[in-house]
Amino acid sequence: MHHRLSKVLLALPPAAYLVVFFAVPSLLMLLASFRYPGEYGGLAPWYYIDDGQLSLDLTTENWLRLVESTIYLGLLLKSLGFALLTTLICALMAYPLALTIARSPKRHRDLLLLLVILPFWSNFLVRIYAWMIIFSPQGALSEGLNAVTGLLGLEPVNLMFSSTAVIVCLVYVHLPFMILPLYANLEKHDPALLDAAQDLGANARQRFWKITWPLSLPGIYAGGVLVFIPSLGIFAIPDLLGGTNGIMIGNVIKQQFVEARDWPFGSVLSLVLTAITLMLVAIAGRFGRPKGTANG
């Protein structure tokens, strides 16, 4: 009895946090998605009292707008594609790095990890502005690249305000979120397992694909979730670097709330994004669990 009480008490603060900052806002958004926009932004009242009779003033037209127009669904798909590509590139870049750090001598590891998280010490927006300078047509990168394309007789490339710029910056910003969980996973691997595999006849490639890789999957799923979700909803990077081509669903949601002042439709798009995210977390949670723990 005592034990159960302490369990409940321990679970209470996070549960309360989730209710207040996630469940309640989500329900408010759900309600908002069926309401009319207010005349000057915000929301119109969702009920009125006429002759002492309570009437609801709700509509499904916000949701119909989403379904009827291909623009938003297309943009959602494109954003999913961007986030997926970002996650893949991050995984490909982070894996060798995390593995190198995890297998380097203990005294070097802390320094290497410090280097990984060093970018966090400067402001996010400042770092994106830095990329604007790098990508700008007068920047060394563009000029260098166009010198090469010029020699080859190709059209000059414009890096700024492109999908490429958005992806590069998304990868840059989110890479540490892939490296850290992956490192945390790889670092825990028992080196005796690799010795055992080698002893039993596995060459270097087999040792990686049969032992290291499957054991690191939970780390990849964890990192994948940490990269994919913020990439999917991000608006600052496409705002600054994407131009019209690089726009993502996050920008549209922001536009609905800030510029178009259409909160109900903004709520619809947000809810769809939240639903997709929750689904993906559930899937990653299912696959991310290490094998064998279910039986144990």
Binding site: D190, L193, D195, A196, Q198, D199, P214, P290, K291, G292
Partner: peptide, 22 residues
């Protein structure tokens, strides 16, 4: 010969069973 080519197998102190395999 590298370890994987030697006709010699080891039982490790920690057993080193692969946790992700049956």
């Amino acid at each position: 010969l590298p370890p994987e080519k030697r006709p010699v197998h080891t039982v490790f102190q920690s057993y080193a069973l692969f946790p992700h395999m049956t």
